[in-house]
Design a binder for these strands. Sequence first.
DNA 1: AACGGTTTGCGATCTTGTTCGCCTTCATGG
DNA 2: CCATGAAGGCGAACAAGATCGCAAACCGTT
Lengths: 223, 223
Amino acid sequence: MATLSGSRPPAKTPRPKLRPDDGRLVRGRRSRARIREAARELFAERGFDGATLRAIAERAGMGASSIYRHVRSKEELLVAELADLQEEAWTRFRTEDDRSAPTRDRIQRFLDLQHEVLVESPDLTMIALRATTHTAARVARRVLALQDRTIGLLAEILQRGRMSGELSREADLLAAARTIFHLTQGSRTAWANGLQSPEACREAIDGGVAVLFSGLESPTAGH
Amino acid sequence: MATLSGSRPPAKTPRPKLRPDDGRLVRGRRSRARIREAARELFAERGFDGATLRAIAERAGMGASSIYRHVRSKEELLVAELADLQEEAWTRFRTEDDRSAPTRDRIQRFLDLQHEVLVESPDLTMIALRATTHTAARVARRVLALQDRTIGLLAEILQRGRMSGELSREADLLAAARTIFHLTQGSRTAWANGLQSPEACREAIDGGVAVLFSGLESPTAGH
DNA sequence: AACGGTTTGCGATCTTGTTCGCCTTCATGG
DNA sequence: CCATGAAGGCGAACAAGATCGCAAACCGTT
């Protein structure tokens, strides 16, 4: 269920025996929850850039600087959000996925779910993308990890298609998965900038996937 | 040669006859040039985020606020930079392009040039990408326009490939061009975050393009 | 030469994410 | 039962992009 900040494995380096949660940290956990709730609400109401940290803090019932006891940056709040949504989309896909269906359909379904989830808040996609442009930041790595996970799932689907003989044996499936993912990401950018309706965005993605499946080269041209 | 801010066509709407450049604006033009030079230098020295507006202003010999007489945001300075580089890459391509060469090679060459130009400053790609996440900003539109231009050029190349019979007649070439472009953009993000060498990035792009050309579907499977 | 309008420049100020130093709370251990 | 030390909180302050109102420079016109 992906905890907020870095998870805390019991041992890693000669850590001097981290004190177990003795109940004193309950207050802190509650604060974190309040912060996340306030952030989610305000992001929805005013968008990421419109949601001031001071406003979030106020709604969470604390001073602005206190937030930084629980979160290392404003973006981290949103990335936590995104991670949750992704998780939701993935589990939904896994539960209703028919592994024997045609690969094309499975990919389609995966992208549909992804789209459905992300289309509700342009901010999420956009700010996550923005986060990857702060090359020094921790959040950038986190977002890229999420992307890799998505790409991995796509590759998995394609892999099965190869095994069933639907897909060519020579094709580089990882490259294909990456291509599909980046295509979705890029198409959504145009949509989030108000240049496209969500449907047009979806169609752009589908178009790209279609070409990728059937290939550009003329079947007659003998390579 | 793409002027800095919005170009000034002599007439567009019932503009009350904009006074012609009477030489009074020379000072301004010189200032603009100084700003752009200072910005270019400082971006190269310290990167986009490291280059303070106040520092740029100082090097350009003026106060920080004065910059905003010539530029509407810091990002605009960088986008101007990017536009110039793109223009350079494109003209270089056009001059040395052999329109009768195999489509695959022409695409390859185009991407090579693009890569060569962009690989020198990770900042350019990154900040341009970041700009597209500020959905209200003018620069976002500008960057998206540049992207469209690139996609258009790719589509043009593909178009010729179809006419010569190399490429399938049914394939959606615009979708393909978009896919290629977004693939490059996405791959470069990983590189700019230090997760990949420039070569690995280039290979990732090539891999994606290869799959796109040959297609995923097994040739035996009869659609 | 005086006027009017426009471009350019400047310092003060605002905004907002983030850091800093200090204080309070509180379970633990001597 | 008090010292310890970590977790949480706070207001002040900082950094940097951006805005504002006012002043100077400048040009064509009267």
